[in-house]
């Protein structure tokens, strides 16, 4: 059960080796006895990541197989994950790939891959998870969106479209959960200096995985539902969204 201070006793991570997911787990500072189930494609990568996350020794971590693109298997996967954890207090959903924009433009199969991973597969899994949380009458879902989903940009519109879809989906799902005891936290990080963006030039107001983790942990403990990171990008997002297309196009990047 979630406690009065936002403490979670059981956590399911969709994208168990994710850097932002693990930064979040670390920031949550789970208490002794908590149980974490990491779900993803590579048990080795997840186990290595869990070791790196430096969780308290009495936090139990296990891994399970989940591929976002395997939509046919999601219902069974979610059922099994919930059965294994018993109550699920918190679902983190940081799975995602950045993909290669240029390749996607010439190889639509790659674009499909990005969309299936970031939007179709993840959203489908979240639907199953949300239904079970509703039944439970409590729990928190965390969805990792991105500034890239805000507007379609030449440089990354294939990835951006997947995040735009996810973002709209999550915002609506969150609204549909009002009054059910379940809360959805929609995180909107700006540019995060991390594994996914290694080698890329940092955008203005870049943030870190640690900052994202801390912001998510604070939102889980509190009442926030939409969480821009850093907080200051919130107003920037609003402005970007409102800019006329002609001007928006001329922005660098």
């Amino acid at each position: 059960m979630n406690d009065a201070l936002g403490g979670a006793q059981s956590v399911l991570v969709l994208g168990g080796a994710s850097e932002l997911g693990l930064a979040t787990l670390r920031a949550l500072d789970l208490r002794p006895g908590a149980r974490v189930l990491l779900a993803g494609r590579s048990p080795e990568a997840m186990a290595a990541a869990a070791a790196e996350a430096g969780l308290a020794p009495s936090v139990t971590v296990s891994t399970t197989n989940w591929d976002a693109r395997d939509t046919a298997g999601h219902e069974a996967f979610v059922e099994k994950a919930f059965a294994e954890l018993g109550e699920v207090d918190l679902v983190l959903a940081p799975a995602g790939i950045l993909g290669d924009q240029q390749r996607a433009e010439t190889d639509p199969a790659h674009a499909v891959d990005i969309w299936e991973t970031n939007f179709v597969g993840l959203a489908a899994t979240l639907l199953s998870a949300a239904a079970r949380l509703r039944t439970q009458g409590h729990g928190v879902l965390v969805v990792y969106s991105s500034v890239a989903g805000l507007r379609g940009r030449k440089a990354n519109f294939v990835y951006g479209a997947s995040k735009a879809g996810l973002d709209a989906f999550a915002e609506g799902l969150g609204a549909s959960l009002a009054g059910t005891g379940v809360r959805l936290v929609l995180v909107r990080p700006g540019f995060v200096r991390g594994r996914m963006t290694a080698g890329m030039p940092a955008a203005p107001m870049a943030t870190t995985p640690e900052a994202v983790g801390a912001a998510v942990a604070a939102a889980v403990a509190g009442r926030a539902e939409i969480v821009p990171v850093p907080r200051a990008v919130g107003p920037v997002f609003l402005v970007l969204r409102a800019l006329p297309a002609k001007i928006f196009r001329r922005l660098p990047g």
């Binding site: 006895g33 149980r35 048990p43």
Partner: peptide, 11 residues
Amino acid sequence: GPAVGPPLAGR
């Protein structure tokens, strides 16, 4: 009583 946790993985 406390649930018996799942097996430890990778640690």
